[in-house]
Simulated scan of single mutants.
Amino acid sequence: MLPYVNHYNACYLNLTRQLFIVSVWFSVVPKKQNISCSNYCATCVRMQLSDKINEIRCDWSSGASQIARNALGVLRFFVQTNKNTSCTGFVEDFSEVGRLLFDARPNMVPVQNLVAQIVYEVNTLDVHDLTVVQKFALSQIDKLCKQSEIAVKESAQNAAALIEDSVCLATCSYSSTVCESLKLAKLQGKNFKVFVAESKTGRVCYGQILAHFLESINVSVQVFPDNKICKYVPKTRCVLVGADSIACDGSVVNGTPTYDLAVASKDCGIPFYSVCETTKANTLSYLGKNVTLKSGFDLVPPILITGIITEKGILGTSEIVDIIKDKSKFLEIFHIQ
């Protein structure tokens, strides 16, 4: 789901705060001193870094996976522009930038997972040569970005394989992975119709955004009011939605009205699937942190979910727990237990 929030003032305040923090890290030259050309350039780089962190915080149009890759891009920028001559100092500063990115989107699981992983890997690398560590960081950042892109595509491919020809299915909210899944099914020559709940949050109907995309790829689509779910779900063969995150008990967080759609599916005996990559597995939930819902989001318990479609196939709760358990070690680098 793409949240619609006016955060311009908050973003401005956060930008000011980040400029101060970044300046403290790297010891900006006091104003009373003469600032050399090199110091001036270094200050410009620090300001650019702060701007990039703020862009991550204030991006309300990109999907979570794309924002996560953009966050890795900020760390790439830091590595490429950092002037630290000490390996220890570089790793400490890299970790600080990572922590700011981790905290920038507290409800965006892919950002936290990927940022924590790269910071963990750099910190646990048993090498003390600055050049080697920097090359390793850049290589791992590129690797994680590529893996993220592949995971989204493979998740969509697995979901597309479940869509049968000449059937109706239902969905709600907006998910770039659902869009990709339906697009792939269409390219495979399948003809199907999609019923989309309008998914109204505030003044925005996210279902309409999804419907516009489907119309652009010539998929038959019909948007229906959120209070008419029980009328349309019985007409479908399956329900396919995206996911903002997956908790360790197998429950899924996604845009409203996902819960109502899941309940109607259960009542009608219709399969209910959620499609997303495993980077959306909420590691914090495994560490005992409560899953907090933002306005416009629903929590769907595992009893209502037929399966979670990922790049690793259709997973059950036990498999989700194994994945989250494996990822939990990365958060130790930020002292989150």
Rank of each mutant, 00 (worst) to 15 (best):
Y120Q: 13
A243D: 02
N158I: 08
A262K: 05
T124Q: 14
E154R: 01
V291M: 14
K153W: 05
F102I: 03
L240H: 07
G255T: 11
Q157I: 08
D322P: 02
N227H: 11
N70A: 09
K200E: 14
D51I: 09
D249L: 01
E311D: 06
S38G: 09
T43D: 13
E180L: 05
K183E: 13
P271H: 04
A264T: 10
P30L: 10
K31C: 05
I21M: 15
L299E: 10
L287C: 06
K327S: 04
V219M: 06
V28L: 12
V74H: 00
A151C: 09
S50G: 15
C41T: 12
L19S: 05
C37R: 15
Q140N: 05
D260K: 01
L13F: 14
F330K: 07
R69A: 05
T278Y: 05
V241W: 00
F272E: 11
S62G: 10
V132C: 13
G296T: 12
A71E: 08
D267Y: 04
S155K: 02
Y12W: 11
V109W: 13
I336Y: 13
A137R: 11
K186H: 09
L138W: 08
Q208W: 09
I308Y: 06
A160M: 08
Y232A: 01
L299Q: 07
E121V: 05
C44G: 07
F94C: 02
V241N: 01
I150W: 04
G313L: 13
S36A: 10
E319C: 05
F77G: 01
A161G: 04
S274G: 04
V127R: 11
M1V: 06
I217D: 02
E96R: 15
P106S: 07
E198D: 12
K329Y: 13
A10P: 01
S251R: 02
F102K: 02
T317Q: 14
C205H: 04
D142W: 06
N282Q: 14
K83N: 14
S295R: 13
M1F: 02
D249M: 03
V5F: 01
N191V: 07
V132T: 14
Y273D: 03
A156I: 01
S176R: 06
C230N: 14
D129H: 14
Y12M: 10
S155E: 06
V22W: 02
V74T: 05
I314T: 10
A64T: 14
Y40R: 12
K135H: 10
G288T: 08
N39W: 11
L130H: 15
T258A: 03
M47A: 15
Y286G: 01
V178N: 01
S176W: 02
L184Y: 05
C37L: 15
N290Q: 12
I229E: 08
Q117A: 12
